[in-house]
Write a protein that binds this DNA or RNA. Structure first.
Lengths: 111, 111
DNA sequence: TTGACACATTCCCATATTGGTATATAAATA
DNA sequence: TATTTATATACCAATATGGGAATGTGTCAA
């Protein structure tokens, strides 16, 4: 077997930083491929190919309008990532630090 | 170029579900490889190899004790993922739904 | 010192991926 | 109809992965 395909789930799809950028560039607005090319400064096939990956995972959808295609982000598809990582935050949050570390910092501040 | 190495950052390291399981299995407790093998039921080399990836990204650290190695998770290294995904939650949260959708649901409830 | 134990590492294979370049497709326009 | 515009797709190269099986390494024990 090999590595899990990028189109398998949101985790793998957004592991590529360019695809995160793409989602950010889309934000809440529908955009044309050309507009994304202009915005990001990438070669057009690169934009199309990354969009294709995002589309397979459902992170974007496409609507045709004449010769253009309008892409829209569906960020709710990131929920699995959200749901996985958020509960783990408590492990690095101050409220769960070891008591002695907290006390040590308080002492420093008192000096 | 090829795909970004799994050891490049937490996003790529954690895109593999087995590595997420491993982190969950570790949780807040230090564990031995053998203990993880028993807990997860995977072949030992598989556990070791996935741990090696997590270690390169800093998501786990290793401590030697006799012939065993004790692994501990460092979940704070997930912060980049947390910081990226959490601000995007607002896009699928009810408070940001389109007004007409909200109204439509309210009407249904009134029936 | 030899063996058993805990774990890491190597080798092999099949498979995807990324970027770049070139080309195909479809729609609008002259 | 011929051409241009907007976008997708095919092809190529280099690289890395993950699983399985085998083997290496270091440490404790008899």
């Amino acid at each position: 077997m090999a590595r899990i395909p990028t189109t398998h789930d949101p985790f793998n799809a957004v592991a590529e930083p360019k695809r995160r950028q793409l989602l950010e560039a889309l934000g809440a607005t529908e955009r044309t491929v050309t507009s994304l090319v202009a915005l990001l400064g990438w070669p057009q096939p690169m934009v199309s190919k990354h969009l294709a990956v995002l589309k397979k995972v459902g992170l974007v959808s496409e609507r045709r309008a004449g010769r253009q295609r309008l892409y829209r982000a569906h960020l709710d598809k990131l929920k699995p990532i959200f749901d996985w990582v958020v509960p783990l935050e408590r492990y690095w949050t101050e409220s769960f630090e070891r008591l002695d570390e907290v006390l040590e910092r308080i002492q420093k501040q008192e000096k």
